[in-house]
Design a protein around this nucleic acid. Structure first.
Ligand SMILES: [Mn+2]
Ligand SMILES: [Mn+2]
Ligand SMILES: [Zn+2]
Ligand SMILES: [Zn+2]
Lengths: 140, 140
DNA sequence: TAGACTAATGATACCAAGTCTCAATTGCCC
DNA sequence: GGGCAATTGAGACTTGGTATCATTAGTCTA
């Protein structure tokens, strides 16, 4: 859905400079289908500085091109996103593939929760973990 | 709901030794009403080693006395738990107080999700963030 | 097409949270 | 009180991420 050229164009439109390091990071992230860490990218790009990889991935996250995926143990990963609005993930704990879910099941509950607790509810985290079909049948 | 003596007793029942360091960590956690980090505890207990604080808080978590609270930025905190079964949290981003919620709003959605995605869903993270009543009125 | 100007880079130090190792200590049970 | 395994804590290490800052290099303008 994304390619290097379209992202390059969006970066330029928003006033960001097109640098070899940025493009290298974009290219490396586009190669991943599941979730990945910053160090996965770093490992493939020995010429690019650590800080630059972090900065670029933060920038891509802010632009909605990447999103952060929370793993079961609490650590954070990244993945190329195909949704720019609020959504959640279903992560396969076996192969790492990630489904982006369309409906936010928390939305309906938030009003009730606000009423019953007296809180003003501003945000939430929600991620699901499981095993995808291929992984289940592949192991039998 | 918990006090030092009852926890000491549970530790002994389960075959754990009662040591000054353990009791100091337990005592320090019981003083907190909201969420806290391991370093919050460490800071109050200069005589206790870093590894021991981590080990003790992990042990208390396994026993259901503490639970892990996920913050909005993805970092993990701890809090004294009053529920031993599956539950989620509503965290005040202003004062840090934590409500433990009784119903799991994800439970109902999981069957649908499993059917529509073909995943076997084994777990989830869910946390809510907001501002509690006192914090909202206190700031006007 | 050459500056100029500013954004971006990357080496490096730092930080936060947590694990690992291992020799020394100490609860616990007899 | 003694034996022994559980526990401790100093310290090195890991992972994920931020702050600093001198140097480099895109981009815009003339
Ligand atoms: Mn996503
Ligand atoms: Mn809890
Ligand atoms: Zn949602
Ligand atoms: Zn739940």
């Amino acid at each position: 859905m994304y390619n290097l050229e379209s992202i390059e164009q969006r970066l330029a439109e928003q006033g960001y400079r097109i640098t070899p390091s940025r493009l290298a990071v974009v290219e490396a992230t586009l190669e991943h289908s599941g979730h990945f860490s910053v160090d996965d990218i770093l490992g493939r790009l020995p010429g690019v500085g650590r800080a630059t990889v972090f900065r670029t991935m933060k920038l891509l996250s802010q632009m909605g091109i990447l999103c952060r995926v929370l793993l079961e143990n609490g650590s954070l990963r990244y993945r190329v996103s195909h949704r720019r609005d609020h959504h959640h993930h279903l992560v396969c704990v076996s192969c790492g593939s990630v489904e982006e879910l369309d409906a936010c099941i928390a939305a309906g509950a938030i009003d009730n929760l606000a009423r019953s607790t007296g809180y003003d509810i501003e945000g939430h985290w929600l991620e699901f973990y499981g095993r995808c079909g291929p992984c289940r049948s592949g192991e039998a």
